[in-house]
C-alpha cells in the first residue's frame, strides 16, 4: 500500500513539474498550424540565431574538452601547493550567476574597461560570447573525468612503459579508452549548457539582432516583441535538442554504471 502511495506521489510530482510544462508549450505552438510554424522557423533572423547557437556550442565543447581533460589530469595526477583550493573552486562557474559572468566581461573589455586596449574585440561580440559560454560550461568535463582518472590503477600504464611505449602512446592506447565514456558524458553536458546559455551571452553580446543573437536570446526578444509563434517555435526546437541530449545522456550513462559494478 505504502509503495503505491509513494510511487504515485513521485510520478505525479515529476509529471506536474517536468512533463506538464513541456506539453503546454507544444500544444500552444501547434495551435498556430504547421505552415505558420515553418515560416516562423525559417525567417533569416531565426536561422541566424540557431546557427550562432550551434557554432558557439561546438566551439565551447571543443575548448572545454581539451582543457577539461588537461585540468582533470593535473588536478588528479600532479602534486602541487594549493591543489585543494583549485579543486574546490573548479565548480565556481557552475554557481556564479550568468548575468555576473557577462557583466565581468563588459567591465574587463568594454569601452572604458580595465583591458580596453585588448587587440581582440570581446565586449558585444561573438568572441566574447564564446568566452563566457566556455566559462559557464567549464566544470562539466573536469568533474566527469576526475573520478574515473583517480580510480585508474597504475599497473596498465607501467606495463605499457615497460614494454617501451611512449607517453603519448600510453595515453592514447591505455588511458583514453578508459576515460572516453566519461569524456563523452562531459561533452554532452557541456553541449547542453552551452546551447542553453542565455544570461551571460545576452549581457556579453548585447543581443544585436542577426549579429550577437543566439537562439535563446531570439526567443526572449520574440516574446518582448509579441512575436509568440517565433518565440514558441524556436523554444520547441531548443526543447527538441534538449530531448536529444537527454537520450544521449541516458544512452551513455549505463556504460558508466556497468563499470562501477565490475
Amino acid at each position: 500500500m505504502r509503495k503505491f502511495v509513494l510511487i504515485g506521489l513521485v510520478l505525479s510530482y515529476a509529471g506536474v513539474l517536468l512533463l506538464a510544462p513541456m506539453l503546454a508549450l507544444v500544444i500552444n505552438l501547434l495551435e498556430y498550424g504547421l505552415d505558420t510554424i515553418w515560416a516562423a522557423i525559417t525567417t533569416p533572423e531565426a536561422l541566424l540565431a540557431l546557427r550562432l547557437s550551434l557554432i558557439l556550442a561546438l566551439c565551447s565543447v571543443m575548448i572545454n574538452t581539451v582543457m577539461g581533460v588537461l585540468i582533470a589530469w593535473v588536478l588528479v595526477r600532479h602534486q602541487f601547493w594549493g591543489k585543494r583550493f583549485f579543486n574546490a573552486v573548479v565548480d565556481l562557474p557552475f554557481v556564479v550567476s550568468p548575468v555576473i559572468v557577462g557583466y565581468v566581461l563588459i567591465v574587463l573589455f568594454g569601452r572604458q574597461g580595465w583591458l580596453s586596449g585588448f587587440p581582440v574585440q570581446l565586449a558585444f561580440s561573438t568572441a566574447g560570447m564564446l568566452l563566457v559560454t566556455v566559462f559557464v560550461s567549464l566544470p562539466f568535463v573536469i568533474r566527469e573525468v576526475m573520478p574515473v582518472l583517480a580510480a585508474i590503477t597504475p599497473e596498465q600504464e607501467e606495463a605499457a612503459f615497460t614494454l617501451g611505449a611512449s607517453h603519448t602512446l600510453t595515453f592514447r592506447r591505455i588511458l583514453l579508452p578508459i576515460l572516453w565514456p566519461s569524456i563523452l558524458y562531459g561533452i554532452v553536458l557541456t553541449l547542453a549548457r552551452s546551447l542553453g546559455e542565455f544570461g551571460a551571452a545576452a549581457v556579453a553580446g548585447g543581443g544585436v539582432q542577426g549579429v550577437t543573437e543566439t537562439a535563446t536570446i531570439y526567443v526572449y526578444r520574440a516574446l518582448q516583441d509579441r512575436n509568440d509563434v517565433g518565440a514558441y517555435s524556436i523554444a520547441v526546437i531548443l526543447g527538441l535538442m534538449a530531448v536529444g541530449i537527454l537520450i544521449l545522456m541516458n544512452w551513455l550513462r549505463p556504460q558508466e554504471g556497468k563499470k562501477h559494478v565490475d
Partner: peptide, 11 residues
C-alpha cells in the same frame, strides 16, 4: 540539465 532555462520559463 538538458533544457535551456529560458525555455523552462516560456513553458
Amino acid at each position: 540539465f538538458a533544457i535551456p532555462t529560458l525555455v523552462t520559463g516560456v513553458m
